[in-house]
């Protein structure tokens, strides 16, 4: 044993899957591209400007805050790009650009980095950014001031999002856009939320790539449908409106599925998605706001640790102690 050759020693396993955090974030960005293209198509180049500002400021804010905190640089994981994109998709195209930037700074610095960076924020940063902008600048962020689509629409509607045109007593208002317009996204609303088609394409991509599990989007949208069917007493036209309109698609596919702020357990995901759907419906039907997706997701975000504790899975082969006692008796 004269010559001692030394090799690298580390804990097993010695092979790893090819998946990386950066790769996952890149997939999310790819999935968000169709909705971005749809928004530029509907609202013009102004939409592109909002997206660009949000993303650039988000990445810059992440870079500077990591630097200021003397922490390892994390802009390479692309999560700041995702946050910037999601925030932009939740803003109207006529928002002053500095407000979009401010939203990005709030999302990244306050909500994400101050709580420890990626994986540590307790609410969805983009949603928190949007809600803070909504309460700070109600004039610019309220649905009444949303721009009408610049092209592709036939119903020459201005102002209010389609969600303001549906209510329990009257169903869908006459001046509301058609379901096909809602599906394609040629209506008024925030950048990324208008085109259900583009968002669904992105969602299908994420599910095929196994980036997200289908549980949250399917249960969320499904539960909204069920609640709305009951609320509108089988007025399926109104139900279709509720599903295609507002932020439900982007919320269910891209915001509620955020890893950090949704339950890690399978049953937890179901509970969480039903909770999101219930709060969304309550706000939409009985609240003073026309739209409730953002608030519902934020509220459920906060409940995630409790949901996880309640739904902690039983280990392989687990037998309830009660049963054992019963067996012992018999």
């Amino acid at each position: 044993m004269s010559e001692m050759t030394k090799y690298t020693v580390s804990a097993s396993p010695h092979v790893r899957s090819a998946e990386t955090t950066t790769g996952i974030m890149l997939d999310v960005i790819i999935a968000l591209v169709p909705a971005g293209i749809a928004s530029i198509f509907v609202f013009g180049l102004r939409a592109l400007a909002v997206i660009a500002v949000s993303v650039i400021v988000a990445v810059l804010a992440e870079y500077l805050s990591r630097k200021a905190m003397k922490r390892e640089q994390t802009i390479g994981d692309l999560s700041a790009v995702v946050t910037g994109l999601l925030l932009a998709y939740n803003l109207p195209s006529n928002i002053p650009l500095w407000m979009a930037g401010l939203g990005s700074i709030i999302a990244i610095v306050v909500v994400k980095q101050m709580f420890g960076g990626i994986g540590q924020n307790f609410v969805n940063p983009a949603l928190a950014g949007r809600i803070i902008l909504m309460s700070s600048f109600p004039g610019k962020m309220s649905a009444a001031s949303f721009p009408a689509p610049t092209m592709g629409t036939m119903s020459s509607m201005t102002g209010a999002t389609p969600m303001g045109l549906v209510n329990l007593s009257n169903g869908v208002a006459e001046e509301a856009p058609s379901l096909m317009e809602m599906f394609l996204g040629t209506t008024s609303g925030c950048l990324g939320e208008v085109s259900a088609l583009a968002l669904m394409l992105g969602g299908i991509y994420l599910i095929i790539r196994k980036v997200i599990s289908p549980i949250i989007p399917c249960v969320y949208i499904g539960a909204v449908a069920v609640f709305m069917v009951i609320a509108f007493k089988f007025d399926m036209y109104a139900v279709a409106y509720e599903i295609l309109g507002g932020g439900l698609m982007i919320g269910a596919i891209f915001m509620a599925t955020d890893y950090t702020t949704s339950p890690i357990t399978r049953n937890g995901k179901i509970v969480y998605a039903i909770g999101c759907a219930l709060i969304t419906c309550l706000i939409r039907l009985f609240g003073s706001l026309p739209e409730g997706v953002s608030f519902s997701i934020i509220i459920m975000n906060i409940l995630v640790p409790h949901i996880e504790n309640m739904t902690y899975p039983k280990p392989f082969g687990f037998i309830k102690e009660k049963k054992e006692k019963e067996e012992a008796k018999s």
Partner: peptide, 12 residues
């Protein structure tokens, strides 16, 4: 094996 095996520092 690569999943559960042990990395060794010395082959003697």
């Amino acid at each position: 094996g690569p999943m559960m095996g042990m990395a060794i520092a010395d082959i003697n």
